[in-house]
């Protein structure tokens, strides 16, 4: 087992465990912290796949900006008060069972797909480098890129409009 595989397994276990903790923690603040762990683990995967640009962006945007946003929201609202009552236990059970079923079905369905034995390039390959993606982004994808700025603008305006008091 070389170092790459070791890293892969480590990051995978970390991602799954953190994700489970996200959905099982009682306190939402802990959930947010565990979610940051998930993002880090996934960024690690990106590094492993030599997708450096995405790894960085993932940390900056998700772990940085979005999670901070979440924490700000917790600051604004009283989390304690909204702790969940313990009724409807069966519906939680049903949710867990449904998720499990979906997992089972998908795994069973994809167990024998024909790309099963193909390899994903790790550690090498330079498409994920900032330079290459940048060229791609500002040549072929420049129009969507610019449109996404309009999306951000409208999201900003929308958030302000919704958050405004009356």
């Amino acid at each position: 087992m070389n170092i790459t595989q070791l890293l892969f397994w480590f990051l995978s276990v970390m991602a799954l465990f953190s994700a489970l903790m996200v959905i099982t923690s009682k306190n939402p603040v802990y959930s947010v912290l565990w979610l940051i762990m998930v993002f880090f683990a996934i960024s690690g995967h990106y590094f492993l796949l030599n997708a450096q640009f995405l790894a960085i962006v993932n940390i900056i945007v998700y772990a940085g900006a979005i999670m901070v946003l979440f924490l700000y929201v917790f600051m604004l609202i009283d989390v304690r008060k909204s702790s969940e009552p313990q009724k409807y236990r069966w519906i939680r059970l049903a949710g867990a069972v449904a998720g499990g079923c979906l997992l089972l079905v998908l795994v069973a369905a994809l167990r024998n797909i024909d790309i099963k034995n193909q390899l994903a390039e790790v550690k090498t390959g330079n498409i994920g480098l900032i330079k290459n993606l940048g060229i791609e982004l500002f040549t072929n994808y420049v129009v969507p890129f610019e449109i996404s700025s309009i999306l951000f603008l409208s999201a900003m305006v929308g958030a302000v409009m919704i958050g405004k008091k009356e």
Partner: peptide
């Protein structure tokens, strides 16, 4: 909303089962 999503997921499972198996 939760119930609706639950139903949606179960239906998805059903569709996958029908589709693949």
């Amino acid at each position: 909303v939760g119930n609706y999503i639950l139903l949606m997921v179960l239906s998805m499972v059903l569709i996958f089962v029908l589709q693949f198996f």
